[in-house]
Design a protein around this nucleic acid. Sequence first.
DNA 1: TCTGGGGTCCTAGGACCC
DNA 2: TCTGGGGTCCTAGGACCC
Length: 353
Amino acid sequence: MLHVDLDQFIAAVEVLRRPELVGKPVIVGGRGDPTERAVVSTASYEAREFGVGSGMPLRIAARRAPDAIILPVDHEAYNEASAEVMATLRAQPGAVVQVLGWDEAFVGVQTDDPEAYAHALQRAVLERTRLHCSVGIGDTLVRAKVATGFGKPQGVFRLTAENWLRVMGARPTVDLWGVGSKISRRLAAIGISTVAQLAAADPDADGLVAEFGPRMGPWFAQLGRGDGARVVDDAPWVARGHSRETTYQHDLTGASQIDEAIRELTAQVLADVAAEGRPVVGLALKVRYAPFITKTFTKKVPETFDRAEVLARVMELVERIEPDRPVRLLGLRAEMRMPEEARDGHTPTRSGW
DNA sequence: TCTGGGGTCCTAGGACCC
DNA sequence: TCTGGGGTCCTAGGACCC
């Protein structure tokens, strides 16, 4: 199967409709105002040379690349471009397409020459959308996904059982799809630093199960080998939930401000859920503080819920986190969960794995 | 230097039931 | 007086991805 990933997708879409930006450092983030609290969504390759990257606070990015053009995020434009790209993929002969996000998808296909197929696919995407993409070829979804990183930009790379360890073995576990900084640190603590070590690990004997549990432990060992699903699944996506999150430009202070914020957010997310016509089974409210503190308040909910109760719980959290100090609430995220579909209950099923 | 917004899935521990 | 075991649900939180 193939994994297709658009190169610097958001920045590329912006440059396409503003040709005068070609070759210039372009940063897309927030409302395009670097004095606001926001982060970088995408930076063009020219901007990356200044050390600007995704997830960086916009304020910092603007300081590092003072001459960069900073643009607001335009979801509509990216949705349209993405739809064109996905339609192009589906139009390829024999292609089964599993969309992973705005700018990436798995493509399942039977072919004797995957490289030729990949190049044809890149040409088709470029012709129809004027966007460049990189393609990973693999015998599992994980290998195809990881392979794409070696193809960037505009290239094609193949990872299979044959060359997986040769290419990935010496690399740190954090290079794997699904292993982040926290997991890689915990792996290192039980003596597993490289992909090869993870691949060779016995989940029980080498402590993976003890550290991560009976499901995730064996799963990480499998990930180290690059093994896993080999089938691209184009079944229609069913959302498990919806959430709305907001970062306030000024910290919220006091119960009335917080109450109003909860009212707005929960109304928005309830509207999102109502649009799907499925009942809500749970609410999670995440309360964010600077720096880095997130507290969660989870509740099973019937059709409606009592906002006064929610406010009381948030104030309780606030007082627990910052006793004897004025409230400095930075952001809120309200998540509504919908009834879960039946799952096989056997292997972890994170999207795309 | 200071922190987006949309998602997904897993785990631990307590409550509760039988 | 002392104290089962298993299953399921709920809450709280953690981690990861794009």
